[in-house]
């Protein structure tokens, strides 16, 4: 969770730097009076790096997939109260007074 989030933050930072570089490039083009035909190559490389980092973050940060099969290893839960054959009522706890009425007050 933490590592994926950090990678995403780095990706967004690189992306904002790429935005800033492109704005400066546009300003340069305005001075030299040329037409914009695409961002410079270093911006494209930055964009690709940030896309890869954000893809990694998008896979790592939101959490893991969980199996939907009821018989799979992680879904197998042994519910003890459902195991009615092993419930015992004839034990020494029955001599203690019931305190359910006291809780009601």
């Amino acid at each position: 969770m933490g590592a994926g989030f950090l990678v995403g933050v780095i990706g967004v930072l690189i992306l904002s730097h790429a935005t800033y570089s492109t704005i400066q490039y546009r300003a340069l083009l305005k001075i030299t009076e040329e037409e914009f035909s695409g961002p410079p190559i270093d911006v494209v490389i930055e964009l690709i790096i940030s896309l890869v980092l954000c893809l990694w973050a998008a896979m790592a940060a939101p959490g893991k997939f969980k199996s939907i099969h009821p018989q799979s290893e992680e879904n197998r839960v042994i519910a003890l109260p459902a195991n009615l054959d092993f419930m015992i009522f004839n034990h020494r706890g029955k001599i203690f007074p019931l305190e359910t009425e006291l809780k009601l007050k």
Partner: peptide, 10 residues
């Protein structure tokens, strides 16, 4: 992220 990249690429 794809939207921002598409916007920067123009």
């Amino acid at each position: 992220i794809g939207g921002v990249i598409a916007g920067i690429l123009g």
